[in-house]
């Protein structure tokens, strides 16, 4: 259970080919006597253009790791390079700059009910230095996600899958090199979930984005280039898809789901 993947098991890639490089990362919650370690000596590389799925039991620290990579928390310790910048010791203001290059997709879509689908996406475009054509960009990405006839609908008038696609459009519209997704399919039915993941896969492959996705959803594991498992705050295994399927109990893992 406590086996940490040896650094040697990580392919030795040059820095420019790496989107995220984590070395000896520890993380604690709380202070003083309540201080509790949640991440133990994490070492992980995410090469550019790869889709990596992170699984593991609840409370194993997956989401915490995701928020650290996403520059959503200050990192006091270890080494955490995101898109070439070491975010350890960065202040809040610098973290915001890093975040602008990351697309976030959440379990909840977190769209503003008061804004139309296009306006929700435009809010992301407005972060870019030049957003004069924000409407055109928003419509383009929504069209790409199959929502061309829904651009001016408010979230209330959209289905769960459509809302999640708007949220994905918002995360992707600025063409971020790194996309972090937390249970993006949890709130969706089987077909919508599959559609969403397929879309993400297509975008990653066609445009060379790096995607790190936390999921419990076995139905979508097939899109991954690699699957990492976290247990009790440690990286338990880091393997390719075939190996993962082979080593996991067929009873809990529906093999048929991996046939596209």
């Amino acid at each position: 259970m406590t086996t940490t993947p040896a650094p040697s098991s990580i392919p030795a890639l040059p820095d420019e080919a790496i989107a995220v490089r984590i070395r000896n990362l520890n993380y604690f919650f709380g202070q003083g006597e309540l201080r509790k370690q949640v991440l133990f000596d994490i070492n992980l590389d995410l090469p550019k253009g790869e889709i990596v799925i992170m699984t593991g039991p609840s409370g194993s620290g997956k989401t915490t790791l995701l928020t650290l990579i996403g520059a959503l928390r200050t990192v006091p310790d270890g080494s955490l390079k995101v898109l070439g910048r070491d975010i350890v010791g960065m202040g809040r203001s610098q973290l915001v700059d890093v975040r602008r290059n990351i697309g976030f997709i959440f379990q909840a879509h977190n769209l503003f009910d008061s804004l139309s689908a296009a306006q929700n996406v435009e809010m992301a475009v407005e972060l870019a230095p030049n957003w004069r054509e924000k409407r055109r960009q928003a419509v383009a990405i929504l069209t790409q996600l199959g929502l061309s006839d829904r651009v001016d609908y408010k979230p209330k008038a959209l289905s769960g899958g459509q809302k999640q696609r708007v949220a994905i459009a918002r995360a992707l519209v600025n063409q971020p090199p790194l996309i972090l997704a937390d249970e993006p399919t949890a709130a969706l039915d089987k077909k919508s979930g599959r559609d969403v993941v397929t879309l993400m896969q297509q975008l990653a492959k066609s445009e060379g984005r790096t995607i790190l996705m936390v999921t419990h959803d076995n139905r979508i594991l097939d899109v991954a280039d690699r699957i990492v498992t976290m247990v009790d705050g440690r990286l338990d295994s880091d393997e390719n898809l075939g190996h993962f399927v082979d080593t996991h109990d067929p009873k809990t893992l529906d093999r048929r789901m991996f046939i596209l």
């Binding site: 996403g70 203001s93 975040r99 602008r100 976030f104 909840a108 977190n110 809010m123 992301a124 918002r170």
Partner: peptide, 15 residues
Amino acid sequence: SHLKQYATLKAMGYR
């Protein structure tokens, strides 16, 4: 009622 959305804006890179 919009706290999640505001937090999302922050995650996206709004200051």
